[in-house]
């Protein structure tokens, strides 16, 4: 009868997300507690204004103790120095700086701020090489977080 922790938290988060979503975020598909698809709109006044992106969240049974897999999907993957063309995102809080107090909404906010602080739309310098070798799950990549400016 006891619901597992991740299910209880995700149902709560979903309710919160539906009630008062962060700016530019809308739920596309969240029918279970495994995979969610969210829409993310570029914030006005930034390089991505008017663009629409799709985010995919994959939750494991240890959520929120372990981070979900988060990546951009769909046709439009934002062109950003920390986002590879296969949708993988180089963002520390998604990997080794994850904390269980983070939520789907807080990840969306982090991504929104990452996009907003971008000054030039370009792919990461090692994009071509990375997408050839990368595994499907970005959590299997050994990330090096070096750039704190964007």
């Amino acid at each position: 009868m006891a619901k597992p922790m991740f299910a209880r938290r995700l149902s709560k988060e979903l309710k919160d997300l539906a009630m008062n979503p962060p700016a530019g975020v809308d739920i596309i598909d969240a029918n279970d507690f495994k995979v969610w698809k969210l829409g993310l709109a570029g914030a006005p006044g930034t390089l991505y204004e008017g663009e629409k992106f799709q985010l995919e969240f994959n939750f494991g049974p240890n959520y929120p103790l372990e981070s979900p897999q988060v990546l951009f999907v769909g046709d439009n993957v934002p062109i950003h120095p920390h986002i590879y063309s296969n949708g993988h995102i180089c963002l520390d809080v998604l990997y080794n700086h994850w904390s269980p107090v983070q939520t789907v909404a807080s990840i969306c906010l982090s991504l929104q701020s990452m996009l907003s602080s971008c000054t030039s739309k370009e792919r990461p310098p090692d994009n071509a090489n990375y997408i050839k070798t990368a595994r499907a799950n970005p959590k299997h990549t050994a990330w090096a977080f070096h750039d704190d400016t964007v």
Binding site: M5, R9, K12, T103
Partner: peptide, 8 residues
């Protein structure tokens, strides 16, 4: 009054 891990 809610725990920030379980949100309850």
């Amino acid at each position: 009054l809610q725990c920030s891990v379980c949100c309850e």
